Simulated scan of single mutants.
Amino acid sequence: MVQALPCISDGALSLDGGMIRTTGVFCLGSREDVDVKFPKSSGMSNLPENYFETENRLKEMKWKKDIFLDDIRREQTLLDHAKFSFEIKKQEFVRFLAESSPYATQAQARAR
């Protein structure tokens, strides 16, 4: 840790209990001054048996959700485009009907 001092800016803690604080306090070698303790592992996992299976299923479900959201966005874009195209065709059709109706023809003839 002493060799690493030029690289330490916020303080450091070693696994053997050494501590360097930002105030410049060094606690190296004396374990009595160190308030941090690490628990010993029994080698047995405290995780439920199906933890990793559940974690993998969760990742898969998130992945599927992202794919579905992408599909929904793509379908929404296609729907918006189809609605826009429909409105344009509808306006063209209404204009065509207005121009080709007998009433419109008679009104144009009278106007001349």
Rank of each mutant, 00 (worst) to 15 (best):
V2Q: 12
A4N: 13
C7G: 03
C7A: 06
C7T: 05
I8T: 06
I8D: 04
D10M: 03
A12T: 01
A12V: 01
L13E: 10
L13N: 11
S14T: 15
D16C: 09
G18Q: 10
M19P: 01
I20A: 00
I20F: 12
T22L: 10
T22E: 13
T23E: 02
C27I: 09
R31L: 11
R31G: 12
E32F: 08
D33R: 05
D33I: 04
D33H: 08
V34W: 05
V36R: 03
M44Q: 12
P48C: 07
N50W: 09
F52T: 05
F52K: 08
R57I: 00
L58D: 00
K59C: 02
K59N: 04
E60R: 06
M61H: 04
M61I: 02
K65N: 04
K65D: 08
K65F: 07
K65I: 10
D66F: 01
I67Q: 12
L69W: 02
D70W: 00
D71L: 02
I72G: 00
I72H: 01
R73M: 03
R74Y: 05
R74K: 11
R74G: 02
E75M: 07
E75N: 06
T77S: 11
T77F: 08
L79I: 14
H81C: 03
A82G: 00
A82C: 04
K83P: 01
F84V: 04
S85R: 14
S85A: 14
S85D: 15
E87W: 14
K89M: 15
K89Q: 15
Q91V: 04
Q91M: 15
E92K: 14
F93I: 07
V94P: 02
F96C: 10
L97H: 03
L97A: 08
A98N: 13
S101W: 00
P102A: 01
T105I: 05
Q106V: 13
A107Y: 04
A109N: 13
A109W: 12
R112Q: 12
